[in-house]
Amino acid sequence: MNPPVLIAAGGGGPIIPNFGGNGHAYACEQANRLFCWGWFSHNWSGTLWPALRQHVVLVLIAVAIGFAISMLLALLAHRFRPVEQPVIAFTSFLYTIPSLALFELLIPVPGLGLSRATAEVALVAYTLLILFRNILAGLRNVPADVLDAARGMGMSHRQMLWRVELPLALPAIIAGLRIATVSTVALATIAALVDNEGLGVPILSGINDYYFKTELIAAGALTVLLAVAADGMLVGVQRLLTPWSRGRAA
């Protein structure tokens, strides 16, 4: 039985167009400079910009679903301690699977195949460990005296969670979101193996082009910029949501 061929596959495989094309239209392209601005601006609106947008969507969906699952599990583990170890074990296991292997492993799963769903399942799987650990650590790090005072003043469990524990866990939660988001931005490039979208597509195409590397460099740079921007935004969100921690000695 033939192993599934993912890269540069013909017919049933994912179509990974060579955006560099064969018609080497620009001087710098013909001269094969390291970075060709002409090519870049020509392919921006048709190729790179859509890929960037797809990439953002891939990451947003993955982090949102991963966050929802992790939050649920962390709340459970916070309430019922025995839940923690199995969750840690399972999410650690997921985290240790090499990403190339995981994407491949998911293809034969019925209902997944070569699709965005496959990409998202894998991306979500990698966010769980980081998010779960950070959310749970945040909830557990709320000072005991603060909880004692909250209970002593007559807050119910639910009120303590919403009014005290979650707000105080926010810095840890957002720290987890930052790591998960940045790593998902990077990981989502590999998702192009199973889902023909995102910045991974031009990167793979660039890898396959032996001579002309502008495409690879441009898409790679966009990935890095996206990660930095997402991280910066989350820092901003944290500053907005946790005004009490501003100017506070750590």
Partner: peptide, 17 residues
């Protein structure tokens, strides 16, 4: 009951946020 009883502890337990 607790809402009707004032409660002060040594570490104060003010909500930092």
């Amino acid at each position: 009951l607790r809402r009707e009883i004032g409660y002060v502890i040594q570490q104060v337990g003010l909500f930092p946020h």
